[in-house]
Nucleic acid binder design. Structure first.
Lengths: 225, 225
DNA sequence: CCATCAAGTAACTGTTTAGTTACCGGCTCG
DNA sequence: CGAGCCGGTAACTAAACAGTTACTTGATGG
């Protein structure tokens, strides 16, 4: 079976590391594990997630998982960090200060809602992490400054709105952000129990659109003069 | 060791079932298991909860747990049902239609916030159940009508407010309730990650009181004409 | 005083799980 | 060409787990 010893053709031996990657590709394996882990943790929580299941979803095996990430807890933390980096990075691209204050806040509300809608795994991970009282997030060194930018930019927009007389003086940046996040998070993360007890399918497009308008309406109504 | 055979005194044999319960008390054992299970499920989720841990917390053992509740899943459903019955029962005692529409809505918002604050285990259970897409709640036959009363009463108050010209015509009962619940749920259930990333201890009384006022303010601002 | 039944204990069982170890195959560099 | 290393496989291990079974204890009724 092994006939490679006979022909010293050196074929491709000059290539650095770009084409023979069809079978062996550390980067892709690593990324596949991270992606599989994100889905597994999101669907089953930290306690319910199975290491074997992650390896299988990634099309690899446990040995590689432990090789790249250490253990289950470190892998989980990596997944969580990447999720936060994802939303905060997308948020920065918004530049909510470029428009009028009112439009800026509306923009942020719309963005947050739509991001939550398109990334249910992010909401799930937050839920799991909070069940454990931020046990792993607290250990993260990467995420300390990641969020200050958001509050800073939001604060600027609110100040401008107050100066223009369109926002009330008591409007607080953290409260505004928490309001926007609350309305999106609860509706989506609790959609299953809510749909069950109120007998209305909340994920239906009609209701989804109505809630999107509602979020913008509530957010602006709470800070407009 | 067994010397009871010698004295046929019949002592206490006339008592029906009220005093010798010091050692044996099925009702208390059942209640202890339910209470222990509520805490264990709330702290660890359905997947993370341990049957042995529940038995130990209840001061009994697994045999009794399986005797009274069948298996882990049925026990979990019982816990969830009791939690819902708890909040809906307390809600009914409010009678939000007795005051002015504005006061009624404010009352409901305050009640919901304070109930969430005093029953963190309820929020936790909701989170766990939603992680599993309401898998167990859907099977519950008891909880279908439990919630219609809330929406009905809220609807009446809103109608009255519209007639009096204090509320906007588009105010929707489900949306109003979801708004109130969102603001309370997100703040409390996500307090750990939020406190970590924003560097502010959200559970501190000062912040708690500020958020309570904020919820009432936002709710009313979103429906007032 | 013995038969019965209900409340409760504790040790056991089969399965699942996170994490480890021994091994394989092919590429690369001296 | 061969030593060694890197990406990968699969079988194993020790612990933890849900659920069961064999047993004890004590009250009651005939």
């Amino acid at each position: 079976m092994n006939d490679s010893g006979g022909n010293g053709e050196k074929k491709r031996s000059r290539r650095p590391s770009a084409e023979r990657t069809a079978q062996r590709d550390p980067e892709r394996t690593r990324a596949a594990i991270l992606d599989a882990a994100t889905r597994e943790f999101a669907e089953n929580g930290m306690g319910g997630a199975r290491v074997d299941a992650i390896a299988e979803r990634a099309g690899t095996n446990k040995r590689m998982l432990y090789h790249y990430f250490g253990d289950k807890e470190q892998l989980y933390l990596k997944v969580l960090e990447e999720a936060y980096v994802g939303i905060r990075t997308a948020e920065r691209a918004l530049h909510i200060g470029d428009r009028s204050p009112e439009e800026g806040i509306g923009e942020l509300a719309l963005f947050t809602w739509r991001y939550f809608l398109q990334h249910p795994e992010f909401l799930s991970l937050l839920g799991t992490e909070n069940l454990h009282r931020a046990r792993w997030l607290r250990q993260s060194v990467r995420l300390k400054e990641l969020h200050s930018h958001l509050i800073g930019e939001l604060s600027d927009v609110l100040e401008q709105g107050k100066k223009q007389g369109v926002f009330i003086e008591t409007a607080d940046p953290l409260h505004v952000y928490l309001t926007i996040a609350s309305l999106g998070y609860f509706y989506l993360s609790n959609q299953y129990t809510l749909s069950t007890i109120f007998g209305r399918d909340l994920i239906e497009p009609t209701h989804l659109n109505a809630w999107e308008r509602h979020i913008v309406h509530v957010t602006l109504a709470s800070i407009k003069r």
